[in-house]
Every structure is written in structure tokens, then in C-alpha cells.
């Protein structure tokens, strides 16, 4: 009536639990440490891979966004720093527009409105400081946007010659130099992210290999006994591989969850802030595939490094 039986088999009663390992690898404090370490590695690797992927996406967007786009800058102040009359400026702009429309290599040419210029500058200045209801109050140059059919050096030379005739102080910007620098910077950052990923992978391999060899040393007698019973190296190795698989899977899930929460939190924090300076990033299927693949890669590497480390040590035993 009032009797209660233990629902779970209890080691303290001297009754064994379900047989899982021939070598008691599932016991011991090192297990928690290794799980936490792998969780941290998965977290860092996911961040690196995400960063590399996002930078790659930004670089692509910058490249495609500026492909075939040139800009002409027409200063609104003269050599003495005096503001030019708006009427003169408008006349010069009209001349430039008419001249460029004659070029076959120019598909479309238009002057950027004050609102468009204001939007471009708003990330760096308070909007109120740039313009008011009467237009732009800062001496920002007039910007003329060109959509190009051809973007060769010859075309650029011809346009510059034409500008020389109409407005010698106007400047043609092909966006090449700063885009090159930006792409070089993102390329370097991507490389750093890839290197960090490789370093983390190497650290993971060494950590798991070291942990497995120390577990082998801890259970040397049991391993030796299995050998004496005729266990092949692969039989013993499989036990360590399974142990590495379970531990790294647990660590990978923890790392994945933490990283997903971190990225979600970062997304909430940056919501609405980044769009004006950075292109928007919408993760696609490839990104999610890479994101999900990272934990599997870590688990695979852990199992392989466990196998390598254990077989190395077993080869030295009789």
C-alpha cells in the first residue's frame, strides 16, 4: 500500500544500469568540461562562418549595386570658396546632362535630387543640418548619376574631355578606388573569419584527441583487459568514438542554440540601425545550410580525431 519501489535502477543499491560502455567513459568530471568546450567552439565557429558569409554577401551587393553606375560631382563653390549662384549651377548641370545624353555609352543620366543627397548623407549628419525646406544648406556638390552601357577607360576619357569643356571643376567618379578598398577590407575580414574557423577546428581536434588519450590513460587497465580478451583495436576505438560523438553532439546543440539566440538578439539590437550604412542581409537557404552544417562538421571532426588519437595509443600497446 504505502510501499514505494525505486523507479530507476540505482547504482547505490549495487544494481547495474543498462549496459552502454565496456569502458566507463560516460563517468567522470572531464565530460562536462569537454562538452562545454565543444559548445564554445561551435558557438565561435558559427559566428565566424556567419561573419564570413555576411561579408561575402555585402561585397556582392556593393559590387552589383555599383556595377555600371558612375557619378559626376559638380562643386557648388568656386576656387575662392564662394558659393556659386544656383542659376549658374543649374545651367551647367543642364549642359552636362544634354552633352551626356548624346553619348551612346550612357544609358541614362539624371541629377540627384536634394532629398536623395540628403538620404545619402543622413547616416553621417543629422538630416536637419544638411537641408531645410529651402533645400540643402551644406555646400555639398551636385551629383549627377550615370547608368552606363559601357564602362571602359576610353568611355571615361571621352566623358572627362566633355566635362573639361563644360565644367573644368567637375569630377567623374567611377567608384573604383573606394570600392576596391572596401572589397579588399571585406576580403581581409573574410580571410580572418576563415582562419579563425580553421584555428577553432584545429583546437577542437587537439582538445578531443587530448581528452581521449587522457581517458585512455585513465582506463588503461580496462583497455588492456579488452585486448587480452581478443578485442581488436577497432572494437575499442568504437567505444571512444561513440563517446566523442555523444559529447560533441551535446556540445554542438548547446553551441548552436546559444549562437542562434545571440544572432537573434543582435538582429533585434541592430534593427533599423544598419540599413543606411550597410546593405540589408536576408539569410538564404545556403546560409542556413552552412549554419546547420557547422555543428555536424564539428561532430565529425571530433569523432575522427578521437579515432586517430585512440588508434595511435593502441598501436603502442601489445
Amino acid at each position: 500500500m504505502g510501499l514505494k519501489f525505486p523507479r530507476k535502477k540505482d547504482r547505490s543499491l549495487g544494481v547495474s544500469e543498462k549496459h552502454t560502455y565496456d569502458i566507463p567513459l560516460d563517468k567522470g568530471s572531464g565530460r562536462i568540461f569537454l562538452t562545454a568546450l565543444i559548445g564554445l567552439m561551435v558557438f565561435l565557429m558559427l559566428l565566424s562562418v556567419s561573419a564570413a558569409y555576411i561579408l561575402n554577401d555585402f561585397a556582392k551587393q556593393w559590387q552589383t549595386g555599383l556595377e555600371g553606375k558612375w557619378t559626376i560631382e559638380l562643386p557648388v563653390i568656386d576656387e575662392n570658396g564662394e558659393m556659386l549662384l544656383e542659376k549658374d549651377i543649374n545651367q551647367t548641370v543642364e549642359k552636362i546632362l544634354s552633352a551626356l545624353k548624346e553619348f551612346h555609352s550612357v544609358e541614362h543620366v539624371s541629377r540627384l535630387s536634394d532629398k536623395e543627397i540628403s538620404d545619402l548623407l543622413s547616416p553621417w549628419f543629422e538630416t536637419d543640418n544638411i537641408s531645410n525646406e529651402n533645400g540643402i544648406i551644406l555646400p555639398v556638390p551636385v551629383l549627377i548619376s550615370l547608368d552606363m552601357r559601357q564602362t571602359g577607360a576610353r568611355t571615361a576619357h571621352d566623358i572627362r574631355m566633355e566635362l573639361e569643356n563644360i565644367a573644368p571643376n567637375a569630377r567623374l567618379d567611377r567608384h573604383e578606388s573606394w570600392l576596391e578598398e572596401l572589397l579588399r577590407l571585406t576580403g581581409s575580414l573574410r580571410l580572418v573569419a576563415v582562419l579563425v574557423t580553421l584555428v577553432i577546428s584545429a583546437a577542437g581536434i587537439l582538445a578531443v584527441a587530448g581528452a581521449m588519450q587522457s581517458r585512455m590513460a585513465e582506463h588503461k587497465d580496462s583497455v588492456e583487459l579488452l585486448h587480452l580478451m581478443g578485442a581488436e583495436d577497432t572494437y575499442i576505438c568504437r567505444q571512444f568514438q561513440r563517446h566523442a560523438f555523444i559529447i560533441s553532439s551535446q556540445g554542438a546543440v548547446i553551441g548552436l542554440i546559444i549562437c542562434a539566440l545571440f544572432i537573434y538578439g543582435l538582429g533585434l539590437f541592430l534593427e533599423g540601425r544598419e540599413e543606411t550604412i550597410l546593405p540589408s542581409f536576408a539569410p538564404n537557404l545556403t546560409f542556413w545550410a552552412a549554419f546547420i552544417a557547422v555543428p555536424f562538421v564539428i561532430v565529425g571532426l571530433s569523432v575522427l580525431s578521437a579515432k586517430w588519437a585512440v588508434l595511435q595509443r593502441l598501436q603502442k600497446m601489445l
Binding site: H19, Y21, P24, D221, L225, H227, L228, G230, A231
Partner: peptide, 22 residues
Amino acid sequence: MAKIRQKIGVVFQDFRLLPHLS
């Protein structure tokens, strides 16, 4: 060597039982 060992049964003086196994 493993295959030969599988043909041998050994009773150790100190038994050498695995303590975590029933």
C-alpha cells in the same frame, strides 16, 4: 594477435572484473 587471444580464456588471480559492469 586479437584472433588468437579470442581462443584463450583467462581466469586472473585478481579476477580483473570491470567494476561498472554487472
